[in-house]
Design a protein around this nucleic acid. Structure first.
Length: 105
DNA sequence: GGCCTGACTTTAG
DNA sequence: GCTAAAGCCAGGC
């Protein structure tokens, strides 16, 4: 997996600050492949950079918690995000307040 | 080595 | 607002 796309996806995901979340579509777009969110999801699944890539900070387009292959599943995921300070709206992430935006310095 | 599936998104009707 | 179809990458069988 020396593909620049995967590499970019991992780098972008790695840059997500604590208490923030990004969507698959956004990452895919930043990586230069609008619509390749599926591939992004797959990269999260295999996640060869598990500790370096906080895949639990990646959620669906509308803030829905999806996937998470690590132990605990979405339960742990939601918990982690909450602990990090991500604003939750029921079982979804409040993107309006906690969606990470590249360059929001 | 080929087909199917999967943590999805986007555009169009 | 919802449904349908197309597009993307790699792993597993």
């Amino acid at each position: 997996m020396d593909t620049s796309f995967a590499q970019k996806v991992y780098e972008i995901t790695r840059q997500i600050p604590k208490g923030m979340v990004a969507t698959y579509g956004q990452i895919a777009r930043l990586a230069g492949k609008t619509g390749a969110a599926r591939a992004v999801g797959h990269y999260m699944k295999i996640n060869p950079y598990a500790p370096n890539v906080p895949c639990h900070r990646v959620v669906g387009s509308n803030g829905s918690l999806t996937g998470y292959s690590m132990k605990g599943g979405l339960i742990s995921k939601k918990k982690l995000l909450k602990e990090e300070g991500v604003i939750f709206d029921k079982d979804k992430v409040n993107l309006s307040k906690s969606q990470w935006k590249e360059g929001v310095l």
